[in-house]
Design a binder for these strands. Structure first.
Lengths: 182, 182, 182, 182
DNA sequence: TATGAATGAGCGTTCATTCAT
DNA sequence: GATGAATGAACGCTCATTCAT
């Protein structure tokens, strides 16, 4: 592990905690403690818990999109589609609570009257994936992207709810691949 | 309107409120006020906020399953499948926050070490729908039921997040129908 | 001392503390502790610190006006004027911080966008005293009431600032009496 | 505008802010930002927020006394008295929050056990004005100065509280002039 | 001289739950 | 059955001040 600066220590601790438990059960004091800094330092870098959570989310998605694009570099056709499906299912298996956290932060933005913060973020996510599917030769890529995104979020939730016992990941990947091809 | 007894007044008020806003932003005081009873009365009938929420969820799903079965009585084949899809999309359009509430209560159960409360509930939901799909001639009904449930939950969340602007409901119904048939 | 109910215990403790030190240096926890109740109980009776302070102020002024009117019952002419002056100077000597508290609560009302709460309160104070002065035969009673109110508030502040060493109360009463007569 | 040095930029920003809102709602961070310097620089020049506020107050009053003396240079008798009244009412109309600020800083000094800081300051203010009134031929100049100071502070506060609707400035000046002459 | 990162105590307020009546 | 008074822990956030650079 390399030495992180304070801001990154806070972001890392927050990312960990928000991946473990709900937004409203994660206190800023807890985040600060896990980061090994004071509450004051946290508020020095982030004006509010909401803004910290938003940065965490942006960080997670940017990292995911970056990794996705790297993976897709030398792939074409079905391999490209399978790579997207793989990447999405990694979200399910590695960050199953991401969908929940996504929703929580979105609701917080509504409560604070910052709903507009969101459109851009949400648009970026859908825009990137839809472009990829289109290039991979998927028919109706916009509609399929919406369907795919919803399906992945839903599967993540149910995976979470069932403790992973609800479905076999490889089987489900195959189903999703067929949907994209069909 | 018929006169409801105290317990039912509380359940109705809680159902309304949990359909409007998150579990953690709905206080028991608010539920009691909406029901027109005292907080004491609420705790007389329900040992905790969690248990009340669980009863609300059971009530919602039982009512939905009951309505679904009534609808399916005289239908066969594709009409049956379409009726299931219609019923699921009504959850999305009429109770878009149900998925979120579902998730919240589940997490509360984990926090309280009552995760076991859930298996039965979740199993009942999937069991019913899987049976219906099987009777309607859907191939691989168990796996398709899981996929369908996840997809509907995911669409509900995204419908909520996008303020309904993300997809056209009828188009998406058609996609889902094709998935079930494929 | 008779046994007070919880609400009155809170009001009494708050009145004491707000008379001792500034609004912003008096915490609700401190008020609750002095009253011998929990913070929760305080918020059970008063929706906010501001509203509690407002009730304290209303209580102080109502009590003062009541005592004033009782005193004036059987007096006429100059005796009436002297009684008003006496009552006002009692505010200075017994509750020298009242003016400061008055201002603090007023500013809080502005901050909370509740400025309207105030007009009624302020009007009641001026209305009562102006009516009394008019009946006592003072010329230009409205203008004199304003002047008198300002003078008393100012004297209270300076009395406070100087630790009581700035002026002799009886001498100053005489000056004020002359102003009202002039 | 001439270029100010850092210390004066801080003093100017603090003077502005303390004239706009209460001492306890004005943070040192806000002062530093308005001055365009760092918090560190602020604490380099002033050992505490309290000491900065005290310097602000001294600056305001010194400037006021200086302007007053300039104005009075070639005046005698009633014109002198009227000039003093004019200058005092300018405090009310142009810096209505000065009295409040005065009080706040005084209380802060008490809290910090620096009450002695104050006697000198307060004495200088009263001393100057009393000397002027005496030279203008006012009877009982010390007592009248106390009364005048209190009246002006009180009027400033009520002017503030009423949003300027409580009294007509010119009418009130006339009243005050009569009091000084009487 | 000047910076701004970092501290940590303190604030007003919310809330599920208990219990005497 | 039903009330609502009372609890107390927890929360997000602010702030004057210190200090290494």
């Amino acid at each position: 592990m390399k030495e992180l600066n304070t801001r990154d220590k806070i972001l890392r601790a927050a990312t960990e905690l928000f991946s473990e438990k709900p937004y409203h059960e994660t206190s800023v004091g807890e985040i600060a403690k896990r980061a090994g800094v004071s509450k004051g330092a946290l508020f020095h870098y982030f004006p509010s818990k909401y803004e910290l959570a938003r940065q965490v989310l942006l960080g997670i998605l940017d990292a995911w999109l970056k990794r996705l694009n790297e993976r897709l570099k030398n792939l074409t056709g079905d391999a490209k589609i399978r790579a997207v499906v793989d990447a999405l299912f990694e979200l399910i298996t590695e960050s199953p609570k991401l969908s929940r956290f996504f929703l929580e932060v979105y609701e917080e933005s509504l409560r604070l009257g910052r709903g507009a913060d969101w459109d851009e973020f949400y648009g970026r996510y859908l825009g990137s994936v839809s472009e990829i599917l289109k290039n991979a030769g998927v028919a109706n890529p916009e509609r399929k992207t919406v369907l795919l995104g919803a399906l992945v979020d839903g599967l993540a939730l149910h995976h979470l709810l069932s403790g992973g016992r609800l479905f076999n990941v490889e089987d489900m990947k195959e189903e999703v691949f067929r949907i994209l091809k069909g």
